[in-house]
């Protein structure tokens, strides 16, 4: 695959994603409370925390599935808002994988993958198809292009969803609990694909409770509670000596299972 163009500005200094005091309300409920987070090029960040802690909201604000109410989010130096510039930066940089896969059930696997490249990126049909074939192979779904989503297993569907996101050739991938809706025996095949992707240098933010996966993929672990980042550390320190009690309790509970 062609290498993605390098960052618009001087690489190592400015982070690829920069969040400053981001707050988000759902009515009276505060989902995010002044969250600040920098994510560098090729960095892998795993976010965990109890349900309702704001992890999903955090990554959904990054690609504008939710609109933050205060603070600033910048991707590659561009402020994320409703402007055309922000839309362009999201289109060229950010892909997302959902907990429920969200494949288009009325379209074949091939059409699921080529829709974005054809309509949003303006690729020619032959090029879009080539791209789809390449990424399907990467997620190890061979010879299923003409099938429909419901003919595949959950694990296969999620891998197709990953391929669909990759067909936009993003630099940043957001994963919102990508294995939470899967049967246990299918979790590994999806995590393997995500791990391989991590090895290619993709910038990734993963919301997950798969701590084994997190410990050897993450560069940075983030623990959230009540809409705030409570703890942020490299995985080694995060798992061996968490500072806050809330994080300790959470880890104890989750690692016991």
């Amino acid at each position: 695959m062609p290498a993605k163009k390098s960052a618009a500005q001087d690489g190592n200094a400015a982070p690829l994603i920069r969040m400053r005091d981001v707050s988000k309300f759902f009515g009276a409920f505060q989902a995010l409370d002044q969250v600040s987070l920098d994510i560098g090029m090729s960095e892998k960040v795993v976010i965990c925390g109890p349900s309702g802690s704001g992890k999903s909201t955090l990554i959904r604000c990054i690609n504008r599935l939710e609109q933050h109410d205060a603070g600033e989010i910048m991707i590659d130096g561009v402020t994320v808002d409703d402007s055309a510039a922000a839309r362009a930066v999201l289109r060229n940089n950010v892909g997302m994988v959902f907990q429920q896969f969200n494949l288009f059930p009325h379209l074949s696997i091939l059409d699921n993958l080529t829709l974005g490249p054809l309509r949003a990126r303006g690729l020619a049909p032959a090029a879009a198809r080539e791209l789809a074939e390449y990424y399907l192979e990467r997620v190890r779904i061979p010879e299923q292009m003409q099938k429909f989503p419901d003919q595949l297993s959950g694990g296969q569907q999620q891998r197709v969803a990953i391929a669909r996101a990759l067909c936009m050739e993003p630099r940043i991938m957001l994963f919102d609990e990508p294995t939470s809706a899967l049967d246990p025996e299918m979790i590994a095949e999806v995590l393997d694909v995500i791990e391989e992707l991590a090895a290619t240098g993709m910038t990734m933010i993963v919301v997950t409770h798969e701590m084994g996966f997190a410990s050897h993929v993450a560069d940075k672990m983030v623990f959230m509670d009540h809409g705030r980042i409570v703890e942020m550390a490299p995985p080694k320190r995060f798992f061996s000596e968490p500072e806050s009690d809330r994080c300790k309790t959470f880890l104890q509970q989750i690692l016991r299972n």
């Binding site: 289109r91 969200n102 974005g116 990126r121």
Partner: peptide, 16 residues
Amino acid sequence: RGQHEAAHSISLSYVD
């Protein structure tokens, strides 16, 4: 709603 969100995530316009 996931269908809308998936369409958004691959940057489809409203019409598309």
